[in-house]
Amino acid sequence: MSRSKHQTLKGIMDGQSKREIDSMFLERDHDAMEWVAKRNIKKEELRQRKVAKKTGEQG
Protein backbone atom coordinates (compact mmCIF):
# COMPACT_ATOMS: atom_id res chain seq x y z
CA MET A 1 0.00 0.00 0.00
CA SER A 2 1.83 3.02 -1.21
CA ARG A 3 -0.79 5.66 -0.59
CA SER A 4 0.03 9.06 0.80
CA LYS A 5 -0.99 9.28 4.42
CA HIS A 6 -2.72 12.52 3.46
CA GLN A 7 -4.86 11.01 0.71
CA THR A 8 -8.56 11.47 1.39
CA LEU A 9 -11.11 8.71 1.74
CA LYS A 10 -12.95 10.16 -1.25
CA GLY A 11 -9.80 9.78 -3.34
CA ILE A 12 -9.36 6.17 -2.24
CA MET A 13 -13.01 5.23 -2.67
CA ASP A 14 -13.24 6.21 -6.37
CA GLY A 15 -14.71 9.64 -5.73
CA GLN A 16 -17.84 8.40 -3.98
CA SER A 17 -19.79 10.92 -1.96
CA LYS A 18 -19.23 11.36 1.76
CA ARG A 19 -22.71 9.91 2.37
CA GLU A 20 -21.88 6.81 0.29
CA ILE A 21 -18.58 6.35 2.13
CA ASP A 22 -20.26 6.73 5.53
CA SER A 23 -22.87 4.19 4.47
CA MET A 24 -20.14 1.72 3.45
CA PHE A 25 -18.54 1.96 6.90
CA LEU A 26 -21.88 1.65 8.69
CA GLU A 27 -22.73 -1.45 6.66
CA ARG A 28 -19.21 -2.81 7.24
CA ASP A 29 -18.74 -3.12 3.47
CA HIS A 30 -15.85 -5.36 2.40
CA ASP A 31 -13.97 -2.55 0.65
CA ALA A 32 -14.32 -0.25 3.65
CA MET A 33 -13.12 -2.91 6.09
CA GLU A 34 -10.20 -3.73 3.79
CA TRP A 35 -9.22 -0.05 3.79
CA VAL A 36 -9.35 0.02 7.61
CA ALA A 37 -7.13 -3.06 7.83
CA LYS A 38 -4.59 -1.59 5.40
CA ARG A 39 -4.61 1.72 7.26
CA ASN A 40 -3.93 -0.06 10.55
CA ILE A 41 -0.96 -1.85 8.97
CA LYS A 42 0.39 1.43 7.64
CA LYS A 43 -0.06 3.20 10.99
CA GLU A 44 1.82 0.39 12.76
CA GLU A 45 4.63 0.54 10.19
CA LEU A 46 4.96 4.31 10.64
CA ARG A 47 4.98 3.86 14.43
CA GLN A 48 7.74 1.23 14.19
CA ARG A 49 9.84 3.50 11.96
CA LYS A 50 9.45 6.36 14.42
CA VAL A 51 10.55 4.14 17.33
CA ALA A 52 13.49 2.79 15.31
CA LYS A 53 14.56 6.31 14.41
CA LYS A 54 14.45 7.44 18.05
CA THR A 55 16.32 4.32 19.17
CA GLY A 56 18.97 4.86 16.50
CA GLU A 57 19.50 8.47 17.57
CA GLN A 58 19.94 7.52 21.22
CA GLY A 59 22.22 4.54 20.65
Rank of each mutant, 00 (worst) to 15 (best):
Gln58Asn: 05
Gln7Thr: 05
Arg47Asp: 10
Leu26Gln: 05
Asp14Trp: 10
Lys42His: 07
Gly59Ile: 02
Glu20Val: 04
Arg47Trp: 05
Glu27Ala: 15
Lys50Asn: 05
Lys43Ala: 09
Ala52Met: 09
Gly11Thr: 03
Gly56Thr: 14
Ser2Trp: 13
Lys50Tyr: 09
Ile12Asp: 03
His6Ala: 14
Leu26His: 06
Ser23Arg: 15
Ala37Phe: 03
Arg3Asp: 07
Glu34Ala: 02
Ile41Val: 13
Arg49Tyr: 11
Glu44Ser: 08
Val51Lys: 15
Ser23Gly: 05
Leu46Glu: 15
Gly11Leu: 03
Gly11Arg: 08
Ser4Trp: 11
Glu44Leu: 14
Ser2Met: 13
Asn40Thr: 04
Met24Asn: 02
Ser2Val: 10
Arg47Tyr: 05
Arg19Gly: 07
Ser4Val: 06
Lys10His: 01
Ile41Tyr: 10
Gln48Ala: 03
Lys5Tyr: 10
Lys38Ile: 06
Met13Asp: 02
Ile12Thr: 06
Met1Gln: 13
Gly59Met: 08
Ile21Cys: 11
Arg28Tyr: 08
Met33Asn: 02
Lys54Glu: 12
Lys50His: 11
Gln58Glu: 13
His30Ser: 08
Gln58Ser: 12
Asn40Gly: 13
Arg19Ile: 09
Glu20Asp: 11
Leu9Tyr: 01
Ala37Gln: 09
Glu45Tyr: 10
Trp35Pro: 05
Gln58Trp: 06
Gly56Lys: 15
Val36Phe: 07
Gly15Trp: 00
Lys42Trp: 06
Lys10Tyr: 03
His30Ala: 14
Lys43Asp: 10
Arg28Gln: 12
Ser23Val: 07
Trp35Thr: 07
Asp31Trp: 12
Thr55Val: 14
Lys50Met: 12
Ile12Ala: 03
Val36Leu: 06
Arg28Ala: 08
Ala32His: 00
Lys54Leu: 14
Arg39Phe: 09
Met33Pro: 00
Lys18Gln: 12
Met1Thr: 06
Asp31Asn: 12
Ser17Ile: 01
Ser17His: 07
Lys42Tyr: 08
